[in-house]
Amino acid sequence: MSHSSKSPWLIHYDASSCNGCDIEVLACLTPMYDVERFGIINTGNPKHADIFLVTGSVNDQNIKVVQQIYEQMREPKVVIACGVCACSGGIFKECYNTLGGVDMAIPVDVYAPGCAVRPEAIIDAVVKGLGILEQKRAALDAAKSKKKEA
């Protein structure tokens, strides 16, 4: 594992969550769970981020915002859906203004269930995301060296 992949930077966006999952994402960063000790930093800039944490389901208004943030992020990148809302629409699935989970808008790599999602589950998902990030990086590297050979 290359050293750079161990300390991913996160960006968090609240699609249409109830806040429950958002404050749990923030709780991960504060002293009780403190993921910052692993160098995991919450950034506001999509181009700085490796991992995209999305909470809440998507609707017609915010689907574009979610896609925009995703597109601005540089490769390799990993998307984590936090909470059942983000996974599938959850309790809001039947609402008239909800399209469904985040995978309606962008490809999702890791699903972290729970309503609200527990900080432990988020941390687990990020660790899982690290592995995926590494695979994606390896794939990119392989593609690059192939190009060089050719």
């Binding site: 609240d14 915002v65 039947e94 609402c95």
Partner: peptide, 21 residues
């Protein structure tokens, strides 16, 4: 309008004891 879900309308689909959730 980014977080609107339409919860008030959900009373049509969830009965009054479920709606508390």
């Amino acid at each position: 309008g980014f977080v609107h879900r339409g919860l008030e309308k959900l009373v049509e689909k969830k009965d009054y004891t479920q709606f508390v959730f």
